[in-house]
Protein backbone atom coordinates (compact mmCIF):
# COMPACT_ATOMS: atom_id res chain seq x y z
CA UNK A 1 0.00 0.00 0.00
CA UNK A 2 1.43 3.32 -1.09
CA UNK A 3 0.76 6.72 0.37
CA UNK A 4 -1.99 8.15 -1.85
CA UNK A 5 -0.66 11.67 -1.48
CA UNK A 6 2.82 10.60 -2.65
CA UNK A 7 1.28 8.94 -5.72
CA UNK A 8 -0.83 12.05 -6.41
CA UNK A 9 2.20 14.38 -6.19
CA UNK A 10 4.31 12.02 -8.31
CA UNK A 11 1.63 11.86 -11.00
CA UNK A 12 1.25 15.65 -11.00
CA UNK A 13 4.98 16.04 -11.56
CA UNK A 14 5.02 13.29 -14.23
CA UNK A 15 2.28 15.07 -16.14
CA UNK A 16 3.81 18.53 -15.80
CA UNK A 17 7.21 17.29 -16.96
CA UNK A 18 5.81 15.28 -19.87
CA UNK A 19 3.61 17.99 -21.36
CA UNK A 20 6.16 20.80 -21.02
CA UNK A 21 9.45 19.10 -21.99
CA UNK A 22 10.19 16.70 -24.81
CA UNK A 23 12.63 13.79 -24.25
CA UNK A 24 16.16 14.46 -25.59
CA UNK A 25 16.02 11.54 -28.05
CA UNK A 26 12.96 13.04 -29.77
CA UNK A 27 14.41 16.57 -29.90
CA UNK A 28 17.63 15.12 -31.36
CA UNK A 29 15.72 13.43 -34.21
CA UNK A 30 13.73 16.61 -34.90
CA UNK A 31 16.98 18.60 -35.17
CA UNK A 32 18.40 16.02 -37.61
CA UNK A 33 15.18 16.29 -39.64
CA UNK A 34 15.69 20.02 -40.07
CA UNK A 35 19.15 19.32 -41.54
CA UNK A 36 17.72 16.76 -43.97
CA UNK A 37 14.84 18.84 -45.36
CA UNK A 38 15.55 21.04 -48.37
CA UNK A 39 12.29 22.88 -49.08
CA UNK A 40 11.28 26.06 -47.30
CA UNK A 41 7.77 24.80 -46.48
CA UNK A 42 9.16 21.69 -44.72
CA UNK A 43 11.87 23.69 -42.94
CA UNK A 44 9.34 26.23 -41.64
CA UNK A 45 7.39 23.39 -39.98
CA UNK A 46 10.45 21.98 -38.23
CA UNK A 47 11.77 25.39 -37.20
CA UNK A 48 8.38 26.25 -35.69
CA UNK A 49 8.32 22.89 -33.87
CA UNK A 50 11.82 23.41 -32.42
CA UNK A 51 11.03 27.00 -31.41
CA UNK A 52 7.82 25.78 -29.78
CA UNK A 53 9.65 23.09 -27.78
CA UNK A 54 12.09 25.67 -26.44
CA UNK A 55 9.35 28.18 -25.57
CA UNK A 56 7.19 25.57 -23.83
CA UNK A 57 10.08 24.42 -21.67
CA UNK A 58 11.14 27.96 -20.78
CA UNK A 59 7.60 29.10 -19.94
CA UNK A 60 6.65 25.75 -18.36
CA UNK A 61 3.54 25.56 -20.53
CA UNK A 62 2.03 22.60 -22.42
CA UNK A 63 3.80 22.38 -25.79
CA UNK A 64 0.55 21.34 -27.48
CA UNK A 65 -3.01 22.37 -26.60
CA UNK A 66 -4.03 18.74 -27.06
CA UNK A 67 -2.67 17.35 -23.83
CA UNK A 68 -4.26 14.05 -24.79
CA UNK A 69 -6.07 11.45 -22.75
CA UNK A 70 -4.15 10.19 -19.73
CA UNK A 71 -2.64 6.75 -20.29
CA UNK A 72 -0.58 5.05 -17.58
CA UNK A 73 1.55 1.93 -17.33
CA UNK A 74 1.96 0.81 -13.73
CA UNK A 75 3.95 -1.97 -12.10
CA UNK A 76 4.79 -2.75 -8.50
CA UNK A 77 4.49 -5.33 -5.77
CA UNK A 78 1.32 -3.96 -4.21
CA UNK A 79 -0.98 -1.81 -6.27
CA UNK A 80 -3.86 -1.29 -3.85
CA UNK A 81 -5.20 2.30 -3.90
CA UNK A 82 -2.95 3.26 -6.83
CA UNK A 83 -5.91 4.12 -9.06
CA UNK A 84 -7.19 6.64 -6.56
CA UNK A 85 -3.80 8.36 -6.32
CA UNK A 86 -3.46 8.52 -10.11
CA UNK A 87 -6.97 9.96 -10.55
CA UNK A 88 -6.24 12.62 -7.92
CA UNK A 89 -2.99 13.51 -9.72
CA UNK A 90 -4.73 13.81 -13.11
CA UNK A 91 -7.46 16.00 -11.70
CA UNK A 92 -4.94 18.23 -9.93
CA UNK A 93 -2.74 18.48 -13.04
CA UNK A 94 -5.76 19.49 -15.15
CA UNK A 95 -6.16 22.55 -12.92
CA UNK A 96 -2.55 23.35 -12.11
CA UNK A 97 -0.48 22.65 -15.26
CA UNK A 98 -3.12 23.30 -16.79
CA UNK A 99 -4.26 20.55 -19.14
CA UNK A 100 -7.10 20.81 -21.61
CA UNK A 101 -10.08 18.85 -20.28
CA UNK A 102 -10.33 16.28 -23.07
CA UNK A 103 -12.22 13.37 -21.53
CA UNK A 104 -15.90 13.13 -22.50
CA UNK A 105 -18.67 10.52 -22.50
CA UNK A 106 -18.47 8.72 -25.86
CA UNK A 107 -22.21 9.01 -26.55
CA UNK A 108 -23.47 12.17 -24.84
CA UNK A 109 -20.06 13.93 -25.32
CA UNK A 110 -20.50 15.42 -21.82
CA UNK A 111 -17.21 16.81 -20.47
CA UNK A 112 -16.70 16.63 -16.69
CA UNK A 113 -13.85 19.12 -16.98
CA UNK A 114 -11.25 17.18 -14.98
CA UNK A 115 -9.98 14.56 -17.47
CA UNK A 116 -11.60 11.77 -15.44
CA UNK A 117 -14.32 9.42 -16.62
CA UNK A 118 -15.35 5.80 -16.92
CA UNK A 119 -12.14 3.71 -17.17
CA UNK A 120 -10.27 6.97 -17.66
CA UNK A 121 -7.40 7.51 -16.91
CA UNK A 122 -6.54 4.38 -18.82
CA UNK A 123 -4.26 2.31 -16.58
CA UNK A 124 -2.34 -0.76 -17.76
CA UNK A 125 -1.12 -2.91 -14.89
CA UNK A 126 2.04 -4.92 -15.38
CA UNK A 127 4.11 -7.41 -13.42
CA UNK A 128 6.39 -5.93 -10.75
CA UNK A 129 9.99 -5.29 -11.87
CA UNK A 130 11.36 -4.99 -8.33
CA UNK A 131 10.43 -3.68 -4.91
CA UNK A 132 9.58 -0.25 -6.37
CA UNK A 133 6.41 1.16 -7.87
CA UNK A 134 6.92 2.30 -11.47
CA UNK A 135 4.48 4.70 -13.15
CA UNK A 136 4.80 5.74 -16.79
CA UNK A 137 2.61 8.48 -18.23
CA UNK A 138 1.88 8.62 -21.96
CA UNK A 139 -0.56 11.38 -22.94
CA UNK A 140 -2.10 10.52 -26.30
CA UNK A 141 -3.45 13.31 -28.49
CA UNK A 142 -6.35 12.58 -30.86
CA UNK A 143 -4.67 13.66 -34.10
CA UNK A 144 -2.29 10.71 -34.02
CA UNK A 145 -4.41 8.29 -31.96
CA UNK A 146 -7.28 8.61 -34.48
CA UNK A 147 -4.94 7.11 -37.11
CA UNK A 148 -4.54 3.81 -35.21
CA UNK A 149 -4.91 0.67 -37.29
CA UNK A 150 -5.50 -3.02 -36.56
CA UNK A 151 -4.88 -5.42 -39.43
CA UNK A 152 -5.44 -9.15 -39.17
CA UNK A 153 -3.13 -10.38 -41.93
CA UNK A 154 -2.90 -13.87 -43.31
CA UNK A 155 0.29 -15.62 -42.17
CA UNK A 156 1.26 -16.07 -45.84
CA UNK A 157 1.56 -12.28 -46.21
CA UNK A 158 4.61 -12.37 -43.93
CA UNK A 159 7.12 -9.52 -43.58
CA UNK A 160 6.11 -7.98 -46.92
CA UNK A 161 2.51 -7.84 -45.73
CA UNK A 162 3.61 -6.11 -42.52
CA UNK A 163 5.60 -3.57 -44.52
CA UNK A 164 2.64 -2.85 -46.81
CA UNK A 165 0.23 -2.49 -43.86
CA UNK A 166 2.54 0.04 -42.22
CA UNK A 167 3.08 1.96 -45.47
CA UNK A 168 -0.68 2.10 -46.06
CA UNK A 169 -1.37 3.36 -42.53
CA UNK A 170 1.24 6.11 -42.67
CA UNK A 171 0.38 7.25 -46.20
CA UNK A 172 -3.37 7.21 -45.56
CA UNK A 173 -2.88 9.28 -42.40
CA UNK A 174 -1.20 12.02 -44.50
CA UNK A 175 -0.68 15.17 -42.39
CA UNK A 176 -3.39 14.32 -39.86
CA UNK A 177 -1.23 12.72 -37.11
CA UNK A 178 1.21 15.71 -37.09
CA UNK A 179 4.23 14.16 -38.81
CA UNK A 180 7.08 13.57 -38.46
CA UNK A 181 5.61 10.77 -36.36
CA UNK A 182 6.94 7.83 -34.42
CA UNK A 183 5.37 4.59 -35.63
CA UNK A 184 4.59 2.04 -32.92
CA UNK A 185 4.00 -1.45 -34.28
CA UNK A 186 2.73 -4.50 -32.42
CA UNK A 187 3.19 -7.79 -34.26
CA UNK A 188 1.37 -10.92 -33.11
CA UNK A 189 -0.54 -11.79 -29.97
CA UNK A 190 -4.33 -11.59 -30.17
CA UNK A 191 -5.97 -8.47 -31.64
CA UNK A 192 -6.03 -6.55 -28.33
CA UNK A 193 -2.41 -7.48 -27.59
CA UNK A 194 -1.23 -6.26 -31.00
CA UNK A 195 -2.66 -2.79 -30.37
CA UNK A 196 -1.35 -2.63 -26.81
CA UNK A 197 2.12 -3.73 -27.96
CA UNK A 198 2.04 -0.97 -30.59
CA UNK A 199 1.36 1.59 -27.89
CA UNK A 200 3.97 0.18 -25.53
CA UNK A 201 6.51 0.21 -28.38
CA UNK A 202 6.28 4.02 -28.30
CA UNK A 203 7.78 4.06 -24.82
CA UNK A 204 11.22 2.91 -25.98
CA UNK A 205 13.39 5.97 -26.73
CA UNK A 206 14.60 6.50 -30.31
CA UNK A 207 18.21 5.92 -29.26
CA UNK A 208 17.58 2.60 -27.51
CA UNK A 209 17.86 -0.19 -30.12
CA UNK A 210 15.52 -3.16 -30.19
CA UNK A 211 17.00 -6.13 -28.30
CA UNK A 212 15.83 -8.43 -31.08
CA UNK A 213 18.29 -8.10 -34.00
CA UNK A 214 15.70 -8.95 -36.66
CA UNK A 215 13.22 -6.44 -35.30
CA UNK A 216 15.98 -3.81 -35.02
CA UNK A 217 16.80 -4.29 -38.72
CA UNK A 218 13.11 -4.15 -39.60
CA UNK A 219 12.71 -0.87 -37.68
CA UNK A 220 15.57 0.71 -39.63
CA UNK A 221 14.34 -0.54 -43.01
CA UNK A 222 10.79 0.62 -42.35
CA UNK A 223 11.99 4.05 -41.25
CA UNK A 224 14.01 4.44 -44.43
CA UNK A 225 11.10 3.26 -46.62
CA UNK A 226 8.52 5.46 -44.89
CA UNK A 227 10.74 8.50 -45.34
CA UNK A 228 10.78 7.88 -49.10
CA UNK A 229 6.99 8.35 -49.33
CA UNK A 230 7.30 12.14 -49.37
CA UNK A 231 4.43 12.87 -46.93
CA UNK A 232 6.80 15.12 -44.99
CA UNK A 233 6.38 17.39 -41.95
CA UNK A 234 2.66 18.16 -41.42
CA UNK A 235 1.86 16.38 -44.69
CA UNK A 236 3.12 19.38 -46.66
CA UNK A 237 5.78 17.27 -48.44
CA UNK A 238 9.36 16.45 -47.51
CA UNK A 239 11.89 13.85 -46.50
CA UNK A 240 10.97 13.30 -42.88
CA UNK A 241 7.64 11.57 -42.50
CA UNK A 242 8.75 9.55 -39.46
CA UNK A 243 11.30 10.11 -36.70
CA UNK A 244 11.51 6.41 -35.98
CA UNK A 245 9.81 3.02 -36.00
CA UNK A 246 9.43 0.93 -32.81
CA UNK A 247 8.34 -2.70 -32.91
CA UNK A 248 7.28 -5.13 -30.19
CA UNK A 249 6.11 -8.67 -30.80
CA UNK A 250 4.26 -11.51 -29.11
CA UNK A 251 3.64 -15.09 -30.19
CA UNK A 252 0.33 -15.66 -31.94
CA UNK A 253 -2.07 -18.28 -33.32
CA UNK A 254 -0.66 -20.38 -36.17
CA UNK A 255 -3.45 -19.09 -38.42
CA UNK A 256 -3.03 -15.39 -37.48
CA UNK A 257 -0.72 -12.47 -38.14
CA UNK A 258 -2.18 -9.52 -36.21
CA UNK A 259 -0.59 -6.09 -36.78
CA UNK A 260 -1.35 -3.15 -34.49
CA UNK A 261 -0.20 0.28 -35.58
CA UNK A 262 -0.20 3.25 -33.21
CA UNK A 263 1.10 6.58 -34.49
CA UNK A 264 2.64 9.15 -32.18
CA UNK A 265 2.84 12.81 -33.21
CA UNK A 266 6.19 14.65 -33.09
CA UNK A 267 5.23 15.84 -29.59
CA UNK A 268 6.14 12.41 -28.22
CA UNK A 269 5.56 13.24 -24.59
CA UNK A 270 6.28 10.65 -21.95
CA UNK A 271 7.65 10.46 -18.44
CA UNK A 272 8.34 7.68 -15.94
CA UNK A 273 8.81 7.65 -12.19
CA UNK A 274 9.96 5.06 -9.68
CA UNK A 275 8.81 5.28 -6.09
CA UNK A 276 11.09 3.24 -3.83
CA UNK A 277 9.98 1.71 -0.51
CA UNK A 278 11.95 4.36 1.42
CA UNK A 279 9.88 7.09 -0.25
CA UNK A 280 12.60 8.26 -2.68
CA UNK A 281 11.19 9.11 -6.14
CA UNK A 282 13.19 9.13 -9.38
CA UNK A 283 11.91 10.70 -12.62
CA UNK A 284 13.00 10.22 -16.23
CA UNK A 285 11.48 11.28 -19.58
CA UNK A 286 13.57 8.55 -21.22
CA UNK A 287 12.20 5.84 -18.96
CA UNK A 288 14.33 3.25 -17.19
CA UNK A 289 16.16 1.01 -19.70
Amino acid sequence: MYDIQLVEETVLRLIRTAVTTLPADVVGELERSLDIEDTEVAKVQLRTILENIELAERKRLPMCQDTGVPIFFVSGPNLASIEEGIALGVSKATKEVPLRPNVVDPITRHNRGNNLGEEMPSIHFERAKGDFLEITYLPKGAGSENMSVLRMLNPSQGVDGIRDAVLDAVVKAEGKPCPPTIVGIGIGGASDQALLLAKKALLRPLDVPNKDKHLAAMENELKETLNRTGVGPMGLGGRTTVLGVRIEKASCHTASLPIGINLQCWAARRCSARIYPDGIVKFSTEGFW
Binding site: V44, I49, P62, C64, D66, L236, W266
Partner: peptide, 13 residues
Protein backbone atom coordinates in the same frame (compact mmCIF):
# COMPACT_ATOMS: atom_id res chain seq x y z
CA UNK B 1 -3.74 28.46 -44.00
CA UNK B 2 -1.72 25.54 -42.60
CA UNK B 3 -0.15 26.21 -39.23
CA UNK B 4 2.29 23.72 -37.68
CA UNK B 5 0.31 21.19 -35.65
CA UNK B 6 1.27 21.02 -32.00
CA UNK B 7 3.10 24.36 -32.00
CA UNK B 8 0.63 25.70 -29.45
CA UNK B 9 2.92 28.03 -27.50
CA UNK B 10 4.21 29.73 -30.67
CA UNK B 11 0.57 30.03 -31.76
CA UNK B 12 -0.49 31.59 -28.46
CA UNK B 13 2.18 34.27 -28.87
Amino acid sequence: FAFTGGAAVVAAQ
